[in-house]
Amino acid sequence: MLKIENLHARVEGKEILKGLTLSVKPGEVHAIMGPNGAGKSTLGNVLAGRDGYEVTAGSVSYGGVDLLALEPEERAAAGVFLALQYPVEIPGVNNTYFLRAALNAQRRHRGEPELDSMKFLKLVREKLKIMQISDELLHRAVNEGFSGGEKKRNEIFQMAVLEPSLAILDETDSGLDIDALKQVAEGVNALRSSERSFLVVTHYQRLLDYIVPDFVHVLADGRIVESGDRSLAQRLEQQGYAWLAEHGEPAGAAT
């Protein structure tokens, strides 16, 4: 389980996360909403261990381990997966090759045997049932020339293959057409289990009609300022974030 306490983080000397507290139990789906620039992607990057994000206070433990002390690749091997808001194009690196290298690196790290190419292809075929992407995309360079939607599907496909225990989806729904949105949501739902938790960052309550969250949080100005069930998302959809201001103290401050 993930336990974030009073997390403060800086980017380029600027404080972005200002005392963020959040707990996620195994099997739970937490949606995180909030205005542009609030720090949602920053939270994802801090959890995944990206360079340049300096944690100045607070703690993050995952499965009892100090997550912040681990390198990004160690976090991945420990089960953390971040689907990026803007997936990166990597010319010259074949998508399938990359995914196999990633899976085998994680398996090595966990002391599990590596998958040979036969076994890996079998796994890929199986996972394509969860998240369909074309053969052509599988064999192209990672995300190179992929459309926005194809990149997002590729992220979910990677997630299906890597089987993380904590998946952070940063606006995976942005830029998807209705059908793709449903497919992505179905993919996520197929991967829901009592051992796997999700942090779903989104601007649209529509996604939450398909991926039904256990909790909804509002992240504003670097803190969780409001938490509730999915009705909170509907309320935000109707009223925007303005009403939060009148709403008093941030929720994070109370804990």
């Binding site: 995944a48 261990g49 990206r50 360079d51 390198e71 990004p72 690749e73 976090r75 991945a76 091997a77 997966f81 971040l82 990026l84 997936p87 990166v88 194009e89 990597i90 010319p91 010259g92 690196v93 990359f98 995914l99 290298a101 990633a102 899976l103 690196a105 994680q106 790290h109 360079a141 990672v142 990677q158 890597l162």
Partner: peptide
């Protein structure tokens, strides 16, 4: 590219391997 390096590492590929992979791709 730092972004590409992070992307590979965030999927579990260790730093040295990620660097090698990107460098080889650069020369391809």
């Amino acid at each position: 590219d730092e972004r590409a390096l992070f992307y590979l590492r965030s999927r579990g590929i260790p730093l040295a391997e990620a660097r090698a992979l990107l460098t080889a791709a650069f020369c391809r």
